[in-house]
Simulated scan of single mutants.
Amino acid sequence: MTPALNEVIHAPNRLRICAFLSTVEQAEFGVIRDMLEVADSVASKQLKVLEEAGYVTLSKPTGRGRVKTWVALTAHGKAAYQEHVAALKALIEG
């Protein structure tokens, strides 16, 4: 079976988010926003799309001080990202 491009992941910012999250256990929202060099609202919108697809989880652990949002790639998201990368490689290799 040929791997398929994933329209949810394929958007540039979402692809960058998935690529970044595939290398770490989790990342703080501000780190992702800064990596993308976008406003909070843009990063939030992209993460919401990924969350609705079941590709990332967002958590806000309670504790002292300012509550930060943490983002992690789910197993489903990791598999979808890997398939998308395989589809891109197949496309490039012809």
Rank of each mutant, 00 (worst) to 15 (best):
M1K: 03
T2H: 03
P3G: 09
P3N: 06
P3Y: 01
N6Y: 03
E7P: 05
V8C: 02
V8Q: 01
V8W: 00
V8K: 05
I9Q: 03
H10K: 15
A11K: 14
A11F: 11
P12G: 10
R14Y: 04
R14H: 04
R16V: 01
R16Y: 00
I17H: 13
C18I: 08
L21V: 15
L21W: 14
S22P: 08
S22L: 08
T23S: 15
V24G: 09
V24E: 15
E25V: 06
Q26R: 14
A27E: 15
F29V: 09
F29C: 13
G30V: 01
R33I: 04
M35S: 03
M35D: 06
E37H: 12
E37M: 06
V38P: 02
V38A: 09
A39M: 06
V42F: 02
A43H: 07
A43F: 04
A43P: 02
A43L: 08
S44E: 15
K45M: 11
K45V: 06
V49P: 00
V49I: 12
L50V: 06
L50N: 05
L50A: 05
L50M: 10
E51S: 08
E52P: 00
E52W: 00
A53R: 03
A53W: 01
G54P: 04
G54D: 08
Y55V: 04
V56T: 13
V56P: 02
T57I: 10
L58M: 11
L58H: 00
S59C: 01
K60M: 10
K60N: 09
R64A: 13
G65D: 07
G65N: 11
R66I: 12
R66W: 02
V67E: 13
K68V: 08
K68G: 02
K68R: 14
T69P: 01
W70L: 15
T74Q: 10
T74E: 04
A75F: 07
A75Q: 12
G77S: 02
K78N: 12
K78H: 07
A79L: 10
A79D: 11
A79P: 01
A80R: 02
A80G: 09
Q82T: 01
Q82K: 06
Q82A: 03
H84N: 07
A86V: 06
A86E: 12
A87C: 06
A87W: 05
K89I: 10
K89D: 06
A90V: 05
A90D: 11
L91Y: 11
I92F: 11
I92E: 11
I92P: 00
E93C: 06
G94P: 03
